[in-house]
């Protein structure tokens, strides 16, 4: 039993490391979602109004929507390279549990996208005049919410990996499923600004994350098997 556990952990660590190394080799894919995040946020003051008060009111939702979109943008590449060079097929044929492999891949991906977005977000929040009281709420809600976004997005990425034009399709499949995270995430930021207690929001975001952790890798694994065999 303990032997098996260590091998699960090894499998996780191995896949995780491999994906990180590969990600660092393709730096543009790392940076692109962040640039996208920055540009989307820039569009709003230009398109709507640069007035500080107005932007401050808009900021929680806007930052969350932009983070959500850039996570989505980065999702497409999650399985693409592995699919193209055939290593995905090998993974599926191997006796290792797919659940752990998927979990490791999504974790590595989140580290490169979700965590990076969370770290960049305060800079953009300052540009949008988000009050300083909102910052902890923003950072923590993104920290708890973006892993859920990555996990759900992985299902969409797995379903569309074999398709030539999966890009628009994946957003169609995944965006409606992002709505609860968006609601609780942006409300948490709003509550932080007005000084309301935040515990409930983080509990809800945590519950969503727990549910996604338990179920999304299963669905992703099933979807990968279907996409690759078909």
């Amino acid at each position: 039993m303990s032997n098996q556990q260590t091998s699960f952990a090894k499998l996780f660590v191995h896949t995780f490391k491999r994906d990180l190394v590969l990600a660092f080799r393709r730096k543009s894919e790392l940076v692109n979602p962040l640039i996208f995040f920055l540009i989307v946020v820039t569009l709003f003051p230009i398109g709507v109004s640069p007035e500080p008060q107005f932007l401050a009111e808009l900021a929680p939702g806007l930052l969350w929507v932009a983070a959500l979109l850039s996570t989505l943008l980065s999702m497409e590449s999650l399985f693409k390279a592995d699919f193209d060079d055939g290593s995905l097929e090998q993974l599926l044929l191997s006796p290792q549990p797919l659940f752990m492999v998927v979990l490791a891949k999504v974790s590595a991906h989140w580290l490169m996208s979700g965590l990076a977005l969370t770290l960049v977000a305060p800079v953009l929040a300052v540009m949008l005049f988000l009050p300083a009281e909102g910052m902890p709420g923003l950072m923590l809600s993104l920290l708890l919410g973006t892993p859920t976004l990555s996990l759900i997005g992985a299902i969409g990425a797995a379903l569309t990996v074999g398709l030539r034009r999966g890009g628009v399709l994946i957003s169609l499949l995944v965006l409606p499923l992002y709505i609860p995270v968006l609601i609780f995430g942006s409300s948490a930021v709003q509550a932080a600004i007005t000084g309301l207690p935040l515990g409930g929001y983080f509990a809800l975001l945590g519950a969503l994350l727990a549910l996604a952790l338990a179920l999304a890798p299963l669905a992703t694994g099933a979807a990968l098997r279907i996409s690759v065999s078909g």
Binding site: I152, I155, L159, T160, G162, L163, R165, G166, L169, L172, L173, P176, L177, P180, L215, A219, A222, A223, I226, S227, S229, G230
Partner: peptide, 26 residues
């Protein structure tokens, strides 16, 4: 959209089944 994007009928059926189950949970 997913169903019409996948050419093979069986694959499309299986993929949409997974998607609709995910939707049902959501």
């Amino acid at each position: 959209a997913l169903n019409s994007a996948i050419e093979s009928e069986t694959t499309a059926g299986q993929a949409t089944a997974v998607l609709s189950l995910v939707g049902l949970v959501n």
